[in-house]
Each structure stands twice: as structure tokens, then as C-alpha cells.
Design a protein around this nucleic acid. Sequence first.
DNA 1: CTGGTTTCTTTATGCCGTAAAGTGCCGAGC
DNA 2: GCTCGGCACTTTACGGCATAAAGAAACCAG
Lengths: 261, 261
Amino acid sequence: MVVYAAQGDARRSLSSLWRGPADGSKPGPKPGLSLEAIIDAAIAVADEHGMAALSMRAVGERLGRTAMALYTYVPNKAELIDLMYDKVLGELPGDYPLDDGWRPALTAWARDTRAFYLWHPWVLQVSQARPVLGPNEFRMLETLLRILKETGLDVQVLRGVVGAVVQFVRGSAEVIADARRASRDTGVSDEEWWYTRSPVLEEVAPDFATRFPLTTWLGGAEAPTDDECTPYLEREAEWNFTVGLDVLLDGIEATVARSVG
Amino acid sequence: MVVYAAQGDARRSLSSLWRGPADGSKPGPKPGLSLEAIIDAAIAVADEHGMAALSMRAVGERLGRTAMALYTYVPNKAELIDLMYDKVLGELPGDYPLDDGWRPALTAWARDTRAFYLWHPWVLQVSQARPVLGPNEFRMLETLLRILKETGLDVQVLRGVVGAVVQFVRGSAEVIADARRASRDTGVSDEEWWYTRSPVLEEVAPDFATRFPLTTWLGGAEAPTDDECTPYLEREAEWNFTVGLDVLLDGIEATVARSVG
DNA sequence: CTGGTTTCTTTATGCCGTAAAGTGCCGAGC
DNA sequence: GCTCGGCACTTTACGGCATAAAGAAACCAG
């Protein structure tokens, strides 16, 4: 038999997310778990071992239960992920002072959000397709809108700007998150990885420099930095983020100027 | 026994990607398959049924073989994906006229690249962590650099700009790809999805409009369009892409202007 | 005390990647 | 021309995954 996911499921999902009042006393044994505890355990698993290690078994084990015990509280894994996602978004700051205008506020927002993604990199692997519609997701959007409203841009344009900013921050974080994950999963650092591949590449593609002159040119330049500790790739990503963000903000400023003048 | 993935593996990967000369005559039965055929079959599976459906069994079946037959040609699934990735990148245009300057060329590049991602959405699910180092990946970068070099920007700044542009295009495509995937996997269109959730959301969060006034404000505005056929979400994504790209290009222009003046 | 509901466990199904071992083909060396 | 060994490919098997189905035990309302 096929159960069509519809009204019933949407109601269950949304009231889980917005945590309606708990039911009164019921028959049956006292619940040893709670939705909250399960979400926290799942977040802990994902934080510590990554999204790939997030299995119903792993979460159950962390709570001293079997995987199947979770299905009393949560209809399936996808919905558990939605709940994790919305809960963890609650860690984001909710307010940015606008005393010096939108630009410093937006810069701070971008930096904080990127840092958040790097703290919980699994969040980047949650599908962006259909918003989870949880309170913290809306709170995040509201925070960003409060800053961008200050630009005075038209609603339609603002939509596009929101998208561009979010995509930029997400993408920048994703590159680093992917790199860290690769280095953890394989046990090979980025430097080691490159030093074993680079000579082989030269050997297998001897005409590289003439075929790809600009790539060679770009590859020769290192990102400037005064920090020698953090690995090469992350220094570079940091620099790219700073430059890219400035370019993007310049673009917003230009758009604002044009829409006014 | 543990085999450390190092020199040997890197050499095999890279020479697969750059397709060194085939070996001479060998003992044993004639190969019924080829690396090329396997990569094509895998791409076909991913194009038709998505990355989630790409299994060694599925690829083997499409070629009339078992899953294990593939392991003669490819060491594992991850490397097959790398090969698919680099091969499919070959479909991207390699040259853009710069007669009218970099801006129209970059706009065309962004549109083509986004269209490419939507044609092969599984490409977006290939980790960005460590580049595959295949010829077509470099070709793609070279194409973008040829356009951006025209701005005359400093190498260091150019790095950041490349990142910002790539992230923006990727992210924009990802939103649509995710939406299409969700709608195919669940059999529920975006419109249906929203119409079942929207009333429940109002019910479960009755104070929504006062808690999230700006979100409500933004949600009220629809993206302008003259096209009534494509679904709502895609029309909106299209609009956001256009606006966002213009903002980003304005930013690059401003950066160029500043670096000159 | 009992019946029905609920929590949680057990068991089972059908996917996945891939290790290991087996089968038959075929070119190179005698 | 025969055999030996490497090669293409299949079969089988293992441990992992999400989750359906059914069972065991705890507990409240009557």
C-alpha cells in the first residue's frame, strides 16, 4: 500500500519544527527519549564525524537505544535532518547594528555566517530545494533582510541581492568544508596531496604551460598573508573570501547608487 | 594489509584522465568493454536518474555486465565519478569573443555554465575539495581566465573574483537543481508542496507576520516575468540570477575602476 | 484487574561498494 | 602445437544503510 505524503505529513513536520504544546498524559511506558534529545544527539554525531557518519544507528547508539527507537519520535531520517538544521541555525546571531550603515553590518553578517558553516559543515549538505520552514530559518532570513533593507533597494532587486549574497557565503564556506573533509577522510593533507600529484601531472601533461598559460600564470601567484600557521589552502580561501565579498558589496553599492540617481 | 594511496594511485588517476597511449597486445580475452564506454554509460545513468541512482550495479547493467566487471577498468566508484566529471566538462564552450569587452563575454559564460549545470545537475554534487586535475577542468578555468584577464585586474584580486563568480553560478544552479530533484523524487510539484504547507504554517505560527515582517514583505512580491509556462520557482530563480549577476558584474567594474584610478 | 495504547527491540528485506575466489579465454614461449 | 600465466568477467559473500513488520513489556483509563 502507498501512503501519499500530504496534509498529514506537512502538519506533523511543521508542528515538530515549531514545537507545539506537548500532549497530555497518555497510556504506555514513560518515554525514555525526547525529540530534543534525539536532535541534539544527531547534531553531535554530525559535528563530530560528518554528515556521512550520520546514521539512525549512530544516533540511537549515542542515546543507548537501537536505531528503530528513534522512529517513535521522528518519521524518517530526512525529517530528522530538517529538525537538526533548523535547530542549529538558532546559533546564528540575530541582530547587527546599523549605525554605520548596511555595509559593515553585511560584512559582519557574511563573516559570522561563514564561520557558522565551518563550525557545522554538515549544514551545507542539507538540500536547499524546499525550505524547511522552521522558525530559525526565517529568523536567519529576517536578520539578513533587516540589513539589506537599509540599502533602500526595490523589493525585486533585493531578492536577487539576497540570493547572490547567500550563494557567495555558502559557496565560499563549502570550498573549505570540502577540503577539510577530504583531508580528514583520506588522512592526506592538502600539501601532501598536491606534492604527490604535481610531478605526475607534469609528466602526464608535458605541454601544460603552453596549453593553459593563464592557469599557469594564476597558479604561480600565492595569496598574500602574514599568517604562516594555517594551511595554504585555507589562507588562500580566506583571501578569496575577503576580496570576493568586497567586490560583491561594491556591486550592491553601485546598484544602490544607480537606483537613486 | 593496508595499501597507502600514494604515488601509484595518483599516477593511475592522472593517466586515466589524460588518457595516455593504450598498452600493446596482451594475453587474455579481448576486452568487451572500454573505459570510454563505462564513463559514457555512467554519465547516461546520472543524467537520466540522478547521482543517487548512480551505482556500480546500474552502470554495469546498462552495459550488460555485472557491477564487478567495471573494476577491471576503474579502481573504484570515486574515480569513476572523477572521470565522468572531467569528460562532461568537455561539453562547455571553450571560447568567448572579447570584441565588446569582458562584460558581455562574462555574462555569456555565466549563462552557459549555469545551463550546463542544469543539464547535468549531478556535476554539482561532485566535491569541490581537491580538483580532479583533468584536462577539461583546466580548460574551463582557462576559458574563464581569458575573459577575466581582460579586466586588467591584479592577479591576487583576480583570484578572489574568479571564486566569487564561480560560487555565484554554481550556487544559482544548485538551487534550481535541488528543486527539480525534490519535485522528481517526491512526485510533488513546488506549487503543490507550498499549497499544502502554507495554511499549516499559518496555523502553527499565527504570529508569523509580526515576528518576521520583512520576510512577509519579501514573500509578497513576485518576480516579474512575461512567461507563464515555467513553474513559479524557476521563474523566480531566473530573475534572481539575472539581477545577482548584474550586481556582481557591477562590483567587478567598480573594482576595476578603483584599481585604475 | 483488564484492555488498549505506547515505547522500544528483534527480525527481515533490499539496496549499496567492493573483497575474494572461481571460470574460461587467449597470446607468448617452448 | 601445447601449455602456462595473465586477463576479462562472474559468482558469492560481507558489512553497512534505511526502514517495514511484528513482538515484548510498561503503563493509564475504565
